[in-house]
Each structure stands twice: as C-alpha cells, then as structure tokens.
Write a protein that binds this DNA or RNA. Sequence first.
DNA 1: AAAAAGTGCAACCGCAACCTA
DNA 2: TTAGGTTGCGGTTGCACTTTT
Length: 211
Amino acid sequence: MEGHLGVRKGAWTPEEDDLLKKCIQRHGEGKWHQVPFKAGLNRCRKSCRLRWLNYLKPNIKRGEFAEDEVDLIIRLHKLLGNRWSLIAGRLPGRTSNDIKNFWNSHLRKTMVSHTEEQIHQRKPNINVIKPRPRVLSRSLTRPLEENICNTPPPPQPPPLSVSLDNEILWWESFLNGEEGEQGTIDGSTTSDFQDEAIAKYFGEETFGGRR
DNA sequence: AAAAAGTGCAACCGCAACCTA
DNA sequence: TTAGGTTGCGGTTGCACTTTT
C-alpha cells in the first residue's frame, strides 16, 4: 500500500515545501493520496499531510508557549489524557504534534515530579482520563438517559458561549462532583461514562464530528 | 578545544476507524 | 456483509543543536 519503492524520506527541502504549498493552494486540502502525484513530489501521502498540517498550513503559531497556553494544556490534559488532537483543537494555531512534543519534553517531567509529590503527601490523585479510541461508542449517539442503568443523567454540558476557561472549570467540577459514585452505563463505569462525555463534548465541538 | 550527554523537534510508523463499492 | 483503500491519530525515533564536563 504505502511501500512505494524510492519514495523520499527525511527532512523536507524548501523546494518540496513550495511544491506542496502550491498544490494545496490550487486543489485544496484532502485527497491526500493524490497529493504527491498532483504536486510532483516523490513523497508518500502521509508525509505530505503531516508536513502541511504541522508546518506549512497558514496561521500555525510557532515559538514558545505562553503561560496561559501552558496552563490550558495542563488542565486539558487532566481532562482528556493524551488526546493531543482534541487539546490542539482548543489552542488556535497550535498543532497536535507541537503540543505532544511540548508535553513530552517540558511538562511530563514537571507533572511526574508533581504527582510524586502528591503521592508523598498522600493527596488524592488527579483525575487523569485514559487515552481512548478517537471514535466514541455508538451507544453515545443515543440520548444519554437511555444508556443509564442505575445512575442519574449527568447535567447538560456548559453552553458553547462560555469562555474556554469556564468550560474547563465546569468539567473539572463535574468530575469532582461525581467522585465515589460508580454506577454502570452499558457495562461501563461512571468514570468511563464521564470520559466519553468529555470526549464527545470536546471532540464534536472541535471538529463537528468526523467527516 | 573536544567529547559526551542532554534537549527539542520534525518526521516516520503502526494501527484503528471510516468510507465505498 | 465484507474486503480493500483512505484517513487521522498517538507513540516513537532520528538527528541537529546546545550544554556540560
């Protein structure tokens, strides 16, 4: 499939960048499998897509992360786990790769030492949501009430008009408020349900659903 | 000044989800 | 229903650059 012999790998040259930019300006994004051919590039479609999304796309913000951006990343990571694309969706101009790199090289160490400190002081652990498949179970497309066996439905998510900061605060208090109550929803625990509710909210609001 | 170690970031890889015939 | 093709994601790697010894 992907294994075209002689496909170029490694760092992109300015000439290649130029070809890719011109191709996407002419034909638009999407149809990545056709891009190498249309652009006249000896690259695989994955490489072209990645280069465009992480480097060439207009409005990409480069350079250091501002303090408020770092704060957002930390809080969103608490809510969403390693779902970098969802986190990136809340940080205009930042790419998922950028945020992932930033987390892995800067924040992970800080957070690990912070967590160790918490364990040492026997503080309750932060509510980290495990990474999940990017598409939610079909059961969630049904009204929430139908899925619930023995727990009340969660409150409605915050209205879209509130600020991002308030959105996160809302979800943080939602998670804290549910602590200790472990009912089942379609065989999942409440925390699974919380996780999916968060992902559904952030995922859909960011992308409007996939495709 | 040179070697070693550490760091940051761009790019690659594998896989699951999704689409379509 | 299913199989093949496409897309998008997160994890990982490789390498250039910087800092330390």
